[in-house]
Amino acid sequence: MDIPEELSYTDDHEWVRAEGGRARVGITDFAQSALGDVVFVQLPESGATVAKGDTIGEVESTKSVSEIYAPVGGTVVEVNGALADAPEQPNTDPYGAGWICVLEPADPAELTTLLPASRYRTLVDS
């Protein structure tokens, strides 16, 4: 199970990459493996204001539907439009081309409440 050290995580199996104060969000390798083949991603609206924990999208596989939650509150500043034609990217490259959206946090301190890789690994191993 790939859990990059430099990323932060949520217990909903999302990852967050801090990029100059912004937060790039995706689903983890564990999440994509559990979902199976992803066939459709419902992206958030670019420009939308969201609170931490809000449902901001859905990932649908041949097996099930899984919601995407905002790992921090803020504004959606970018979405991965390539997923419309290539929804399998969270399977093939969950931490790269499979990213979902970028958030501009309203309170950057919320980023520090996320799980470090070591704690996320404990979560998925348990």
Binding site: G36, D37, T62, K63, E88, N91
Partner: peptide, 9 residues
């Protein structure tokens, strides 16, 4: 078996 490593599709 639900699927094998190659995946359902």
């Amino acid at each position: 078996p639900l699927s094998y490593p190659s995946g359902t599709i």
